[in-house]
């Protein structure tokens, strides 16, 4: 994907936080590239550092206690070199973000209309009535019925799905080139989730906007992302174009994530495969492969030596594993659940 229309290029990003218990290395050496108009899915359990990654890219880290190193270039501009004022201008016009909980990201005591026009005024030189028209048009474009009436309502008067639509409208107000969606549908019903995901996809097509979709559910990004990066303990452990990832996955963690999702085509009472234990704490991550303590295929080497990100067979496919599993495409059609480890390749 190293093309001319590269929108975002992140190189060797590290973000850490000083806490009472020690330094948390939440993002530990992440590089990624995103082209204009494309969708990148970042998938991982909570504790994998995916939210911190997004916040680091946006420059939304706390002033105190957080350290960021590495390069983030957005349309060739190094984010770290922007002054706070430039950065403020940058948000909204270039990058915007929607969050998991729409209620906490909207101001509860401000009318919907005002929240959107404020966002417009912040970045664009337009008069009041024009901003209002733009706000109504935005609400209409995110499929909110009766936008004029909704403009006068407060967030608590809307349902969860409607609130998330308002958040999307606010995020889109100044036509950002990149939208971060941080678990945008986790708090919503499945039916509303489908509506919101469809809305994001449609807005993305219409605006030629790139999207980074952060989720713990591979199902959410399977049909919608162009590329997927799987994060574990602050690192990208596998990355590939979406179709390749699902057919060629080599990292046991990706496989475990995928097979822990209950599927409609499984018979009921099917035992789900699980990942034992919990993600490591990022103050003292385990030596060697960070997934080794929970990995069914871990061997001695995994516990001492950290595997590098190596290229897979398909273009754009990279993974981080000493003993990668057989990809689904090379497995006999029947035995899906567990892939046996290969010999010591990589």
């Amino acid at each position: 994907m190293e093309r001319d229309d590269t929108l975002l290029q992140v190189t060797d990003l590290h973000t850490s936080f000083a806490t009472g218990r020690g330094t948390v290395r939440a993002v530990d050496g992440v590089s990624l590239t995103l082209a204009a108009g494309r969708t990148l899915g970042i998938v991982g359990e909570s504790g994998s550092g995916k939210t911190v990654l997004a916040r680091s890219i946006m420059g939304l880290l706390p002033k105190r206690g957080a350290t960021r190193t590495g390069s983030i270039r957005f349309e060739g501009q190094e984010i770290g070199e922007l002054s706070p004022k430039d950065l403020r201008d940058f948000w909204g016009r270039q990058m915007a973000m929607i969050f998991q909980d729409p209620m906490t990201s909207l101001n509860p005591v401000m009318k919907i209309g005002k929240q959107i026009t404020e966002a417009i005024h912040e970045h664009l030189e337009v008069d009041r009535s024009h901003a209002r028209e733009m706000a109504v048009a935005l609400l209409r474009s995110v499929r909110i019925p009766e936008p004029e009436r909704r403009m006068k309502e407060y967030p608590h008067q809307l349902s969860g799905g409607m609130r998330q639509r308002v958040c999307i409208a606010v995020a889109l107000a100044c036509g950002p080139a990149l939208l971060f969606a941080d678990e945008p549908t986790t708090a919503l019903d499945v039916t509303v989730q489908a509506q919101v995901l469809e809305l994001i996809a449609q807005q993305q097509r219409e605006r030629h906007m790139a999207t980074i979709m952060i989720t713990h559910d591979l199902g959410v990004v399977a049909g919608r992302a162009d590329e997927i990066a799987v994060m574990y303990a602050g690192r990208i452990v596998e990355r590939a174009p979406t179709a390749v990832l699902f057919s060629e996955l080599r990292m046991p963690y990706t496989q475990a994530l995928l097979s822990s999702i209950p599927r409609l085509d499984q018979p009921s009472h099917a035992r789900l495969s699980t990942i034992p234990g919990r993600p490591p704490n990022l103050i003292t991550p385990p030596p060697g492969c960070r997934f080794a303590p929970r990995c069914a295929f871990a061997q001695d080497r995994c516990r001492t030596e950290e595997p590098p990100l190596v290229a897979g067979d398909a273009p754009g496919h990279e993974y981080r594993c000493w003993f990668p599993v057989d990809p689904p495409s090379r497995r006999p059609a029947t035995g899906t659940p567990v892939g046996a480890p290969n010999g010591g390749e990589a």
């Binding site: 489908a194 509506q195 449609q202 699902f246």
Partner: peptide
């Protein structure tokens, strides 16, 4: 409800026409 469940399979692209509209 069935159609709204995200399927972890990129071959099954979500179909906008199966999305239940409204509230």
């Amino acid at each position: 409800l069935l159609a709204a469940i995200p399927v972890p399979d990129p071959a099954q692209r979500p179909d906008p026409t199966t999305v239940l509209a409204g509230e």
